[in-house]
Amino acid sequence: MIEVDHLSKTFWVHKKKPGLMGSVRSLFKREKVEKRAVRDVSFRIDEGEIVGLVGANGAGKTTLVKMLAGIIHPSSGAARVLGHTPWERHNDYRRRIALIMGQKAQLWWDLPAADCFLLLKEIYRIPTDEYRRRLAYLSEVLSIGDELNVQIRRLSLGERMKMELIAVLLHGPRVVFLDEPTIGLDLTAQRAIRDFILTYREAHRPAMLLTSHYMEDIQRLCKRILIIREGEIVYDGELARVVERYAPNKVLKVHLRRTGQKVQPTNELRALGEIVECSEDTLCLRVARDRVAEVSARLLTTYDVADLAIEEMDIGTIIERIFRERGEVQA
């Protein structure tokens, strides 16, 4: 459904020196700097998939989404979405996609949601029966009632996001771009939006590309993720395998029964793994993932163990570290 082939986007941005003199100088001469927002990105997304696009601020997530939604033109490369080149903006294409931008309200501020939806009905030429059926379904799943008749600007952020979701899904898009749909929402509203997205995906099987800064969104919604760093895709694969690939070690934390004697960091112990902590009653070892069972067994037989815990690095932490670092991430 979505095929992206060596897509790149470069912006030219003006650089201005700080201070008054910098401002005066920029009136006459301005320096332009090249900003490579997206570099040589390739991937594909199939029907029914929700793929998470994760990256730090400025990594190029929104630029990529805007290119695929047809808002901006790429500098090079190609993309086919539903058989169309997005930035050619064919109406056939635009009738089959949807874009929701959590940071930018798409609905008309001064109108009640019901009026906005009627306008969208005309924009997308949705037959009346179909419109009524979809609106009823979406309102029910999102628990929307009287709020339909309230001006958008008078709704809470969570209610507004629900209306945005209804608005972009009324025409039954086959591809949905969700750019930070839960940004700024409280935990309850975030959960409601996530549950809705899953329900909708099960019922309609569109391809979805989701960007979010909340790992909870990614973990709950996406089996597959793309990690983008400085415009480049550095990981494309299953979310679960991120841990295996970027965190090859686990931490074994052993609590020992008090004997009054401190455990010595012997060579034998070092051979089992990297010693992180070694005290009277606690021993912490960083151990290769494939040796965890063997090392645990050795520790249980060698020491008087009161408790043993095997700790996996939190996936959010791993991904955050991938954003920042170029090399492999160690647990």
Partner: peptide, 12 residues
């Protein structure tokens, strides 16, 4: 302000 985004996505 970027309000143009929505009109570029609409089939009009």
């Amino acid at each position: 302000e970027g309000g143009l985004n929505r009109y570029l996505v609409f089939p009009v």
